[in-house]
Nucleic acid binder design. Structure first.
Length: 422
RNA sequence: GUGGAUGUAGCUCACUAGGUUAGAGCGCCAGUUUGUGGCACUGGAGGUAGUGGGUUCGAACCCCAUCUUCCACCCCA
């Protein structure tokens, strides 16, 4: 075991790959149902894109980016999140002139230099959506609904909780921060060292500090929802009303503050009820496109952690994939080997999954193998079958439902497909 | 980045007053007399005990370093 995968990375293979593909296929279904189009952007972008958009006071930018200089002396960073790259692509390719709203989805890997824990990797995958061009609360609602549609398909609707909040616009947030600061000012000495720093750099983050003393002090803090300006307040009310009308259950949690600077108004997250994990986080970002030198464009989006979602599914045993094989062709001796292989190849051309032994196993071992691979049917080829030009197609689950067919790929494929449909 | 754990076959784990060729279950490969799987039985492959040093006549077991993974913070998907 000389070479190990880099810290914080993961190999995905065999059964786990099947689980991923299952989730991915559900994601594609949802994407189609919501009429979104897929976007793929580069794994790396110029460093400045992230420092500008994510915010240079955030932890992501301060200590978690994989940044390096390329051979041309450019500062490059492996994307720590996807929104910035999508927004860059939106502007660069003039997508603002496409019919609004532009609804983009992606499934891509992102990179953060973090200390490992379960559900926390240095390379991980996010399913995400960005809805660009709508300032309406309806867009917020749609962004909230999309993960829900996926959870429903995965049968974990009751296993996650939706938390929402509004952090207002720059104007009302600034007012709130003043209130919060004056509330905390007197007790600042008793707070943890992190919070003392946050007090000056990013006061909102104090809200979700987990230190006991800080929590105590925060008990009677002012809530941002009480300080929203009229527009922001109305917007938030409309979001809630619409969610209610759709029977979407949610908690209003005035303590959720996202770790990226570009959010405003609605922020939301989906949290596992059983594991201590945030599976999905998102919100509105009306100023980001402009900040990245694009046309003024309101937008909302979210990112959903694939590794965490799959971790949750595994924990709930909701993602068990039974691998299936349509036909296993066995042969009695080396004499029938070539006929068997040709038959397999021919049947495969009809879209069925077919396996033949390529290890030189005995007939009996081939049968065992067919069983292990969970083959629906087996076909045994021997001298008799070849001379009579007829084969027995054995149903591996129920011997009584076995049947015969001509030794012909077309006939066999049609017969198996017909039986499968029943 | 801070604090605390962990590491023995592909997987889940045994073996400690430090002492001959490190074990089990599952998995993998094969066989149980020659044309039919799932059970059972038998056999086989597979580990320089994460890696590198040190202590010792002798280390998987003791010490140090390092890496990995995990837990609590931090943060977040």
């Amino acid at each position: 075991m000389k070479y190990l995968k880099p810290k914080g990375t993961k190999d995905i293979y065999l059964e786990e790959m099947a689980k991923w593909q299952n989730v991915e296929s559900k994601i594609r279904e949802v994407a189609k149902e919501y009429n979104m189009s897929e976007i793929r952007t580069p794994v790396f972008e110029s460093t400045e894109l992230f420092t500008r958009s994510v915010g240079d006071e955030t932890d992501i930018v301060n200590k978690e980016m994989y940044t390096f200089e390329d051979r041309g002396g450019r500062s490059i960073t492996l994307r720590p999140e996807n929104t910035a790259g999508v927004v860059r692509a939106y502007i660069e390719n003039g997508m603002s002139s496409a019919p609004s709203p532009v609804k983009l989805w992606y499934l891509s890997n992102v990179y953060r230099y973090e200390k490992m824990q379960k559900g926390r990797y240095r390379e991980f995958n996010q399913f995400g959506v960005e809805i660009l061009g709508s300032a309406s609360y309806m867009a917020d609602v749609e962004a909230i609904l999309i993960p829900l549609a996926l959870f429903k398909k995965l049968d974990i609707l009751d296993e996650v909780t939706l938390n929402i909040n509004s952090i207002g616009c720059t104007a009302c947030r600034a007012k709130y921060i003043e209130k919060l600061k004056s509330f905390l000012k007197d007790n600042l000495d008793e707070m943890c060292s992190d919070c003392k720093v946050r007090f000056y750099k990013n006061p909102l983050r104090i809200i979700d500090c987990k230190q006991k003393k800080c929590k105590e002090i925060l008990q009677n803090k002012p809530n941002i929802t009480d300080y929203l300006c009229e527009d922001c307040s109305n917007h938030f009310e409309k979001v809630k009303e619409t969610l209610d009308s759709l029977n979407v259950k949610y908690n209003i949690n005035p303590d959720i503050v996202r770790g990226l600077d570009y959010y405003n108004r609605t922020v939301f997250e989906y949290v596992s009820n059983t594991l201590d994990l945030t599976v999905c986080g998102g919100g509105r970002y009306d100023t980001l496109v402009e900040l990245c030198q694009g046309p003024k464009t309101p937008a909302v989006g979210f990112g959903l952690g694939m590794e965490r979602l799959i971790l949750l599914l595994d924990d709930l045993e909701k993602n068990k994939i039974q691998k299936e094989l349509d036909i296993y062709i066995t042969y009695l001796s080396e004499k029938e080997e070539k006929t068997a292989y040709k038959l397999a190849t021919d049947i495969r051309a009809y879209g069925l999954s077919v396996e033949v032994d390529i290890l030189g196993r005995s007939f009996k071992a081939q049968m065992k193998q067919a069983d292990k691979l969970n083959a629906a049917y087996t076909i045994a080829l021997g001298e008799d079958e070849i001379s009579n030009n007829i084969v027995n197609i054995k149903n591996m689950q129920n011997k009584e439902e076995s049947f015969t067919a001509d030794l012909d790929a077309n006939v066999i494929a049609k017969a198996v497909k017909a039986v499968n449909k029943k």
